[in-house]
Design a protein around this nucleic acid. Structure first.
Lengths: 336, 336
DNA sequence: AGAGCTTTTGACAAGGCTGTCTTGGCTTGA
DNA sequence: TCAAGCCAAGACAGCCTTGTCAAAAGCTCT
């Protein structure tokens, strides 16, 4: 009873042409006489024919006009904004997007990569979590473009798009110093990723330039997905000699910091967050901002270029970050 | 020079078995003798063999263990949370997810649906934008499961998962009434969608129950993607007889309302938003809440069930909504 | 009219995998 | 000891499309 899907053969029969001609109408129309095209299209429409992307991809030697994207999870604004930028470029270019998440676990990454590669995607875009992407080397040699977003690949030659992490945090730190702060904390979780290492480096440069030596005392670097941001910031605030300013390493930490400060009725401690968020302007939160959607766009473009030219040197693009002053980052310390 | 991808044939040769046996090792392992399995796996590993999902899908008559998801855009928290719920279930079940966005345009919907269906997905999940999904009827008959999220399909028999929109807004409205409000506005954009119609209906029920007749005066229903939420709420506030309470029809409108109120130094007008957001607790915003991730999960489950049993009655699931009181919705009107 | 060219169309096979059917070897039971 | 039965493994074809090669049809020009 279930009707069968129409194939080129069915359309060909109805239009009195060969299957190959039907195929041409759907991929190299310019090679077919106008009235034939019309006849074929009419038949196709009548039979509700739709080319089978599976068979096409198979025949075409694997080029599927599809890219795979691996991100930590869709619940995180950073990830989905990047995804959004990628998706937009791909749509413009007629590419499909297969999405997979890893819950930010290392095993997850390799496992979903495996699945995606089985789909014969033309390119793999990923925000690396695993500390080693060597497992992709074979695939890269087979012609799959690999582009890393936000963090460069380790032990793998691949294109990447990253942020000016150092510069951003250096600017934030300098601003706090210029407002008179000396006890400047930096909190983040996770910490063992490239972007955080870079941000910390930026912070240290600024501290060193101001002659602040004991900066490490107020670094709180955690790698525990179960740890709540609010509690971490609370630890800092409740310490014997609390910081007078806090830099939060990502947007979750920033919101956690706001909660912790609120809970303590603290409106004196300065705060700068890395990464802007929806209501930051309403709450007057100073942040290091950047364009996550652009991050995705650039990554997609790199992938497209790499598909065109699988050889050639790998490239790394760095996108700017900038400070958006809204209040919390311009507070001066109460005690000198 | 580019190395070729290994196929079952290559693995078979190396393991001294037939291609069919390799195939069995990768899909019906229990039919193969243990030591043969081992030999094949070793060979596969050496050659970096990975089954070609394209060929497999083709051969298996289209079952690709992949679902397609069509949403408006990834930049909207509602959409990506739903996507997140779906993705999670699919990952557990070993299904892949192909994502496509429409920018909330009608043409976009049918167009990307077409592309996805070309990929021979087993199910199509969508948040309908188009006012008519009849174009999917043929596909449904061919055995593709179709599940609508947040809004039921029109002119198409399909499973769907929706929210208790009426009940949520009815509760919000009643609460405002019980606090003494009579001039209760409702703002939303877009307005010509099922969910908003339902919410409005809920509002009207509550108003009618309280004997408020002229409620329609404070309804601001707009369908213009370019219109800024803040400006719309501003219009309401600046009118001759402004409302004493506002219900915002979605999260963007809620944030827009907060901006408009802030800009006017207004902290008297009550506000209840539909849909919770990240910093709503910090800002004391009362909202009608629900679980968008669960919305996605249920949708994915419906799709899985439909794939199992393509016949059978279509089902509609309604998920609860509830009021979260945080302050802005508990303000009493300044003037009676 | 016929050579030479271009345009349009078609026959055939292949791409990688798996469903169907078959074979060969071994076990079981009378 | 032999038929019946079972298990592991293989040969072959086909899923649907398209690249390759070739033929047919139409045209120009001498």
């Amino acid at each position: 009873m279930t009707a069968q899907r129409a194939t080129v053969e069915d359309v060909a029969r109805l239009a009195h042409v060969s299957a190959k001609t039907v195929s041409r109408v759907f991929s190299q129309r310019e090679l077919v006489a106008p009235e034939t095209v019309e006849r074929v299209l009419a038949a196709a429409k009548r039979l509700r024919f739709r080319p089978n992307a599976l068979a096409r991809g198979l025949r075409r030697g694997g080029r599927t006009r599809t890219m795979g994207l691996i991100i930590g999870e869709l619940g995180n604004p950073f990830y989905y904004k990047v995804a959004s930028g990628i998706e937009r470029v791909l749509r413009e270019e007629g590419y499909g997007l297969v999405l997979a998440t890893t819950d930010d676990t290392e095993e997850g990454e390799e496992q979903v990569a495996e699945t995606l590669l089985g789909q014969r995607i033309d390119a793999l875009l990923l925000i690396p979590v695993s500390r080693d992407q060597a497992y992709l080397e074979g695939e890269r040699q087979l012609g799959t473009a690999v582009v890393c977003v936000d963090r460069p690949a380790r032990n793998l030659i691949a294109d990447s798009v990253v942020l000016a992490n150092r510069a951003g945090v250096e600017a934030a730190t300098s601003q706090l110093i210029s407002h008179g702060h000396r006890r400047i904390a930096y909190v983040c979780n996770p910490a063992a990723v490239y972007s955080q290492e870079e941000r910390l480096a930026g912070r240290r440069v600024a501290l060193a330039a101001a002659g602040i030596e004991d900066g490490a005392r107020w670094e709180l670097l955690v790698d525990d997905p179960a740890e709540r941001p609010e509690r971490l910031v609370g630890q800092l605030l409740d310490a014997a000699e609390p910081p007078t300013a806090i830099i939060a390493g990502n947007n979750r930490m920033t919101v956690g910091a706001l909660r912790a400060l609120r809970a303590r009725g603290d409106d004196a401690t300065a705060l700068i967050g890395f990464d802007d968020f929806d209501t930051a302007d309403l709450m007057g939160v100073t942040v290091v901002s950047y364009d996550p959607v652009e991050l995705g766009r650039q990554a997609a473009r790199l992938a497209l270029e790499r598909i065109e030219d699988p050889t050639g040197f790998s490239r790394q693009i760095e996108l700017p970050t900038w400070l958006v002053s809204r209040g919390t980052g311009e507070r001066s310390p109460v005690t000198g």
